[in-house]
Design a protein around this nucleic acid. Structure first.
Length: 599
DNA sequence: CTAGGGTTAG
């Protein structure tokens, strides 16, 4: 351990003050200490006069040291702590709390163990701080140990403590354990429900998160959602494309007087955008009095993903006129706008501007947009160069973006290299091989295609089933390829047949060459005609009045044929069709798509 | 004798 810093000037006026003050005077001097220099002088003084032995004084001083730790360091606080001869539980709690918020949260855990070994009483607070530490270092093992202690200590009905514990399990991806803690809680307040919803959101239970919004309000629980609940549920709506549910939450927000909260408005803007309802997003955005960088970024990204690249760039300029400084996420939106609309030169310009004029260091998302931009424009080699020249480690997503571009431009040799990189990262997924097979298939390279297929079979690599959802009256309906599980399946298939024949008259021809989702299918044409998005669309046509927009969310990329299908349908049936796939939105209107073939 | 806990915008 390094030597403690001490005051350099031997006799300052402050030290005189210290020496002449009574013990109550000293306490108030300590409490009012706000500068590092005074802190060091008090420290020296307490050491010289053995005042560290006095628990009240040492506690007060520890409080100040911890409070001023941004000026000194957590290590300094610890050094002082170690000088206290007989630290009490109070001292420990103070120090453990400090650690839980510091850059070395794990130390809090060791100190907690130390506290117990000394036989001091660990109260609920101490345990609470330690769990915080465990969350920070995502130590499930540590958390479980503390959990056991909590039960032994008889703190099993402390809601606040148990809520923290739920958050721990949630952060460690232990959904069931978090639920169990929730179930065993004697009393659950709104925050407990919020943590449960947050847990669903972060553990692939997004649909359950929506359900909880209603369950918590039901007769049995009678728990009022608050602003945080709304924030969480809006995120769930956005990721599920649940527009109607989102509108309900919007109404709830208005009815409960949260309408003016900027964080909620920003969330609404994002939710509406991500549900493909740009006009509603803009409505909320326009009504906001204080638009901050988050609001603008949400609007810019919203415009971008919905295919309004030029408008997104205009919004970016407008934002600067209003004196709001863009940050990293603003640029993610702007670059995304460029990549979705094929604005290669603009994209390069913004990428350059970003760091030079706004000091925003490009992150993996920015690079990802640039790779997408270059890749889609056919500049595959520069895109590859860009990835290899990054000063950050390429993540699987960025390689996958390039792989997508390889598919568009049918570059099989680069695609193979990219898959090689994914394998190197041990991140290759079924979808990557499917993409590779798509490339071989459209190039007519049947040998390689069979090779990959065989490889996948041998390794038993499971493909992610394509799944499309459509929300109707607040309920999400799910479809997979050739789905026969829906109650109205007969009507749906009849409708799909009718749509197909109508579209054929209008000149739509099924494209069976470029896609093969169903690996085992002998009859590709057949599998194609019952893709999940087509079933969802047919269901939409069937169950909504003419003219109603049809909104579908798909977990994978939409295939070329389904894209053509939706495009034709939007004209023939005069329906707006909005499909959100894994990478972007497709707005189909009057026989056209917002992506203008650039996709 | 002293202080102190949970969820949370793009």
């Amino acid at each position: 351990m390094t030597a403690l810093p001490v005051a350099t000037k031997a006799q300052t006026s402050y030290q005189k003050l210290l020496q002449t003050s009574s013990s109550t005077g000293l306490l108030s001097l300590i409490k009012s200490c706000t500068t590092k220099s005074h802190l060091l002088q008090i420290h020296a003084h307490t050491l010289r006069t053995s005042l560290v032995l006095d628990p009240t004084i040492s506690f007060q001083f520890l409080s100040v040291v911890v409070a001023l730790s941004p000026l000194t360091s957590i290590t300094y606080s610890r050094q002082f702590f170690d000088q206290i001869e007989k630290p009490t539980a109070f001292h420990y709690n103070k120090m453990i709390r400090a650690y839980s918020k510091s850059d070395s949260p794990a130390e809090g855990f060791y100190l907690y163990r130390d506290l117990r070994r000394r036989g001091l009483c660990a109260d609920a607070m101490a345990s609470s701080f330690v769990i915080k530490s465990c969350i920070r270092v995502s130590s499930l093992v540590g958390g479980i140990q503390v959990h056991a202690r909590i039960l032994r200590d008889g703190h099993r009905s402390d809601s606040l403590l148990l809520t923290t514990l739920m958050d721990l399990y949630s952060n460690c991806r232990k959904y069931d354990e978090a639920c169990q803690v929730f179930d065993e809680m004697p009393k659950r307040d709104t925050v407990a429900w919020n943590v449960l919803i947050s847990c669903c959101l972060h553990n692939n239970r997004t649909r359950d998160a929506l359900g909880l919004f209603d369950i918590m309000q039901s007769e049995i629980h009678r728990c009022e959602p608050d602003d945080v609940t709304c924030l969480l549920v809006l995120q769930a709506c956005a990721s599920l494309n649940a527009l109607e549910f989102g509108e309900r939450v919007h109404k709830y927000i208005e009815d409960h007087g949260y309408g003016g909260a900027s964080n909620l408005c920003n969330s609404l803007v994002s939710m509406y955008s991500r549900c493909g309802s740009l006009d509603k997003a803009y409505g909320v955005f326009k009504g906001m009095r204080d638009k901050n960088v988050v609001s603008w970024s949400a609007m810019i990204s919203g415009l971008a993903v919905n295919g309004y690249g030029r408008e997104a760039i205009e919004a970016f300029e407008e934002m600067q006129k209003m004196g709001v400084l863009p940050d990293d996420q603003t640029f993610t939106g702007v670059l995304c706008a460029c990549s979705h609309c094929g604005l290669v030169d603009e994209g390069m310009m913004f990428f350059d501007l970003m760091s030079k004029e706004f000091g925003v260091v490009p992150n993996v998302h920015h690079y990802g947009c640039m790779v997408d931009l270059l890749g889609r424009a056919g500049q595959l080699d520069p895109a590859y160069q860009l990835i290899t020249s990054m000063d950050i480690k390429p993540d699987p997503t960025i390689w996958r973006t390039l792989l997508g571009a390889c598919r568009i431009h049918g570059n099989d040799s680069l695609a193979e290299r990219v898959v090689g990189h994914l394998i190197e990262l041990k991140a290759q997924e079924a979808g990557d091989y499917v993409l590779l097979m798509n490339i071989y298939s459209s190039a007519g390279n049947w040998e390689k295609l069979t090779e990959v297929r065989k490889f996948m079979k041998e390794k038993a690599i499971q493909t992610t089933p394509g799944c499309s959802t459509i929300e109707l009256k607040g309920v999400a309906h799910e479809f997979v390829v050739d789905d026969v599980s829906h109650l109205r399946k007969d009507e749906i298939y009849k409708m799909l047949d009718e749509i197909n024949s109508q579209l054929k008259i209008a000149g739509y021809v099924a494209d069976v060459t470029s896609e093969l989702h169903n690996l085992g299918a002998e009859d590709k044409g057949h599998a194609l005609s019952h893709h999940s998005e087509k079933l969802a669309i047919a269901f939409g046509v069937l169950s909504t009045p003419p003219g109603t927009p049809i909104r579908v969310a798909k977990n994978l990329r939409i295939c070329v044929d389904c894209h053509n299908f939706a495009m034709a349908l939007s004209g023939v049936y005069n329906r707006e069709v909005i499909i959100r796939d894994r990478t972007r939105f497709h707005h189909f209107r009057e026989g056209h798509c917002s992506c203008n073939g650039y996709w």
